[in-house]
C-alpha cells in the first residue's frame, strides 16, 4: 500500500530528480541546441542557450556535403535487415526451446549466450580476411550477416523468455483443433507473442543501429552507416561544432524515439531475462 507523502518532501525529491535528470540529459540537449546555431555562435563565449538566431542551415550543409541520407539508409537497411533476418531464424528456434524442451535445451541456450560473450576483436582478423576474399567488405549484405549473427543469441533469448510465458495448453488446443505445425506457429503462437516479438524487434534495431565495432571495421564508403559517418567527423570537421551537432542529432534522433518506447523491455532483453 502506498502511503501519502508530504508535499514538501515530494517537492524536494522533484527538484533533486529533475536536476539530476537534466544534468544527465544535458549533453544531448546541448547537441540539439548547437545544431541550430551558426558556427560562430556554437563556439561563442559565453555560450548562448536559447537566445540565438535559430537556423536550419547546418542540416542542409550536412546533407549536401556528405550525403547524410545515404548513410541513414545504410543504417536503416542494416539494422532492420539484420533484425528481421534474426527474427526469422530465431522464432522457430525459440518455439522449439520454449514448447518442446529437451534435456539439452538449457545447454543450447547457455551455449548460444556464450557466443555473445566472445570479444569481437578476437575474431576481427578472420572475419576481415574472409570478407576481403569474398568481396563482402564494405557491403550492406556483409554487415547484415555479421549483425544478424552477433545479435541472434539475444533475439533467441528474448523470444524464449516471452514464449515461455505463453501456456503450452493453448498450442496443444490448436493441435487438437487440427492445426499443423506451421498453422500453429502462424495463427496461434505469433499473434499471441506480438508484444514480445515487437519489443525484441525494437531492442535489436537499437543495438544494431548503435553497433560500432563491426560497422567501423568492415565498412569504408559505400556501406558505411551512421556510426561510421559520424566517426568521420572526428577530425578535422569535428571542429565545426554546429555541423557535428546537426549530424549527431540526425543520427541519434530516430533511435532515441524507438528507445523511449521500448525502455521497459530493455531491462529484460539486456539481462537475458535475469531481471524482469
Amino acid at each position: 500500500m502506498a502511503r501519502a507523502v508530504s508535499n514538501r518532501r515530494k517537492a524536494l525529491v522533484t527538484i533533486c530528480a529533475w536536476a539530476v535528470g537534466i544534468a544527465i540529459f544535458f549533453p544531448i540537449l546541448w547537441t540539439v541546441l548547437t545544431s541550430f546555431k551558426t558556427e560562430a555562435e556554437a563556439i561563442a563565449s559565453p555560450p548562448s542557450f536559447l537566445f540565438f538566431d535559430w537556423t536550419l542551415e547546418n542540416y542542409s550543409t550536412v546533407q549536401e556535403r556528405s550525403d547524410y541520407f545515404r548513410h541513414f539508409s545504410n543504417s536503416v537497411i542494416i539494422s532492420f535487415g539484420s533484425t528481421l533476418l534474426g527474427l526469422l531464424i530465431a522464432i522457430p528456434a525459440a518455439w522449439s526451446m520454449a514448447f518442446v524442451p529437451g534435456k539439452r535445451t538449457k545447454d543450447v541456450l547457455m551455449w548460444m549466450l556464450s557466443t555473445k560473450m566472445l570479444p569481437p576483436v578476437g575474431v576481427l582478423i578472420p572475419i576481415y580476411l574472409l570478407f576481403r576474399d569474398t568481396g563482402l567488405l564494405d557491403t550492406r549484405v556483409g554487415l547484415v550477416m555479421v549483425l544478424t549473427l552477433i545479435n541472434l543469441p539475444i533475439i533467441v533469448w528474448m523470444l524464449f523468455t516471452y514464449f515461455r510465458e505463453i501456456p503450452g495448453e493453448i498450442l496443444e488446443a490448436a493441435r487438437m483443433d487440427g492445426a499443423e505445425l506451421w498453422s500453429e506457429i502462424i495463427y496461434v503462437l505469433t499473434p499471441m507473442a506480438v508484444p514480445g516479438i515487437a519489443s525484441t524487434l525494437l531492442l535489436n534495431i537499437i543495438l544494431s543501429w548503435n553497433e560500432a565495432f563491426w560497422t567501423l571495421n568492415l565498412t569504408a564508403v559505400d556501406a558505411a552507416p551512421l556510426t561510421a559517418f559520424i566517426a568521420s567527423y572526428s577530425s578535422p570537421e569535428g571542429l565545426f561544432y554546429a555541423k557535428l551537432s546537426a549530424a549527431s542529432t540526425m543520427a541519434i534522433a530516430p533511435i532515441l524515439i524507438i528507445g523511449w518506447f521500448s525502455q521497459k523491455q530493455l531491462v529484460r532483453g539486456l539481462t537475458f531475462g535475469a531481471v524482469k
Binding site: I24, P27, N210, L244, S245, S248, I252, I255
Partner: peptide, 29 residues
C-alpha cells in the same frame, strides 16, 4: 515525485546515443 515519466526518459536517453556520437560530442563540445 512530479514528472516521474519524463525524468525517467531523460535519464535513460544516453544509452541510446551511438558510441561515436557521444564520444565526439564529449570530446569537442
Amino acid at each position: 515525485f512530479w514528472g516521474q515519466g519524463i525524468v525517467r526518459i531523460l535519464v535513460i536517453a544516453p544509452f541510446f546515443v551511438m558510441p561515436t556520437v557521444s564520444a565526439l560530442v564529449w570530446k569537442n563540445m
